[in-house]
Design a protein around this nucleic acid. Structure first.
Length: 204
DNA sequence: GCTGTCAATCGGGACA
DNA sequence: TGTCCCGATTGACAGC
């Protein structure tokens, strides 16, 4: 397969197996979309190709049996390349691509829709993985902090009961020592200290 | 036989 | 109102 820069004069060799249109399967109520299993009505619609084939039983069974179309490697590859460039197609791009690939515009449209869906699903799965790992690290961090808290409590049981910060000078005092006004100079507020901030009481 | 993949279908929302 | 797109689902098929 060779691609020239000018899309209108692409030099692409795609193997298109002989195409046999499906027999018309009658009126499908409420069906708005192009049905690949129906007889193509226009020249463009007749461009449906790829590996589509007709099962003779279909026309006899009476039921509408969908045939599985497999795009050729070349078709998939070119569609993929187009998708990398643009996740959505303009009507002209769609028409050109369909003509070039000898597919119907509807097939190209469907391929892009499904491709976008797969792309989104993949992205969501990656996001899920990321969030799982993040959750794991947060759990681990939480576990470490809890151990740290336990260690601090073990060091001085009375001081971890309640620390209070003076709203004016923002110094931290031990509630247990409040009566004696033992103010901790330059105490640093951190996650390691369990404290309550009182807005009404003044210590200074 | 089961399972995964993927083209096609369906119903519905958004928008010009 | 027609067209386009999306999400959910179906169904054919391939690989195991």
């Amino acid at each position: 397969m060779a691609l020239s820069p000018n899309s209108s004069s692409l030099d692409l060799t795609i193997s298109i197996p002989s195409f046999s249109p499906s027999p018309s399967l009658g009126d499908h109520h409420g069906m708005r979309d192009f049905d690949i299993n129906q007889t193509p009505k226009t020249e463009e619609d007749r461009m449906i190709g790829a590996t589509q084939h007709v099962n003779e039983e279909d026309s006899n069974s009476g039921g509408r049996r969908r045939k599985k179309l497999r795009l050729t490697k070349e078709q998939s590859h070119l569609l993929e390349e187009s998708f990398i460039q643009n996740h959505t197609l303009t009507p002209k791009q769609k028409k050109d691509l369909a003509t070039f690939l000898k597919l119907s515009q509807r097939q190209v449209e469907v391929w892009f829709q499904n491709r976008r869906a797969r792309s989104k699903l993949k992205h969501t799965e990656m996001e899920c993985e990321y969030l799982k790992r993040w959750f794991g690290s947060l759990k681990e961090q939480n576990r470490r902090l809890q151990i740290e808290v336990e260690e601090l409590r073990a060091l001085k049981p009375s001081s971890t009961s309640a620390l209070t910060m003076c709203p004016r000078c923002e110094r931290v005092t031990d509630a247990a020592d409040n009566d004696s006004n033992a103010v901790q100079e330059g105490a640093v507020l951190s996650s390691r200290s369990r404290m309550t901030i009182s807005s009404s009481s003044s210590f200074c």
